[in-house]
């Protein structure tokens, strides 16, 4: 790891000031992705801004027909939160399968979503549930937020504050893990919210994406069988030593089917 300065601001405003003043500063929350990257010297920040002391980024609460989760909510908190379990059990279930126990004890939802690793779990929930990303400056719809591998709509110095999840009628998630890294090899988050169906696919492609054919099929008939016949095109999907694009395409259908079954 290259050396850097460490800051721990006490307020959102101070954090934004630090990050805006230095384009090579990086925010850190749980650090479960950033620190391994820094250890491999893939990144050379001048300073690291620890967000963990910022109260505005905390909290999980239900507001009407929305669930608002602060950026600093750890995976273990989302997995065990009574509010999340009651409102969106699929989200709690997903959080309980991210990484391993120790990752869940440190990693945060804000960090995961802002990082937008194609093989991460949360982006598919955010996209599938049509959540809104709340930053220190604005509100961003999920469809606009994710812009491909490790890329989001966040501008330099802009901080993710919270994520607002509309509460769905039904939602379910299923994934196949990469056998080595245990990140997602192919995953599907399905949700029916206010009558609208969304299917978000993670792991299989270079970024999270919506599977519109499956959305149509499920709109017509909400059942595992409805998606079982929908084939994912392998073009553009990831292909590596762990599986071909064709295998991943096949898994997308299998996981979508299971996700619907999990949603009930």
């Amino acid at each position: 790891m290259y050396d850097f300065e460490y800051h721990k601001p006490g307020s959102l405003a101070d954090a934004v000031k630090l990050l805006s003043a230095d384009p090579d500063a990086r925010p850190i929350s749980g650090g479960q992705t950033l620190l391994p990257a820094l250890k491999h010297r893939l990144n050379k920040p001048t300073s690291v801004v620890d967000l963990s002391g910022i109260a505005e980024l905390r909290g999980i609460k239900r507001e009407g027909n929305k669930l608002v989760i602060g950026a600093l909510a750890k995976h273990v908190e989302v997995a065990t939160s009574p509010e999340v379990k009651a409102a969106i059990p699929a989200l709690a279930q997903m959080a309980g399968t991210i990484g391993d126990t120790q990752v869940r004890n440190r990693g945060t939802i804000g960090g995961s979503v802002a990082n937008n690793d194609p093989a991460a779990d949360y982006p598919s929930a955010v996209l599938g549930l049509n959540a809104t990303i709340v930053t220190d400056k604005r509100r961003i719809a999920a469809d606009d937020f994710f812009q491909g591998m490790f890329t989001t709509a966040l501008e330099p110095g802009e901080l993710l504050v919270a994520i607002e999840f509309p509460i769905p009628e039904k939602a379910g998630y299923a994934k196949m893990r990469n056998p080595a890294s245990r990140y997602v090899m192919a995953g599907a988050f399905v949700a029916k919210t206010g009558g609208a169906v969304r299917v978000a696919i993670n792991g299989a492609g270079p970024g999270v994406f919506r599977q519109t054919e499956m959305e149509k099929a499920l709109t017509a008939n909400w059942s595992p069988d409805a998606v079982a016949g929908v084939k994912q095109d392998a073009d553009g999907l990831n292909s590596d030593i762990h599986g071909s694009a064709e295998y991943r395409a096949h898994l997308v259908t299998v996981m979508a089917k299971r996700a619907v079954a999990n949603a009930g």
């Binding site: 650090g31 620190l35 120790q102």
Partner: peptide, 10 residues
């Protein structure tokens, strides 16, 4: 926690 994935300062 994994002590290799948390800064001492954290």
């Amino acid at each position: 926690v994994k002590a290799c994935t948390i800064l001492a300062l954290q």
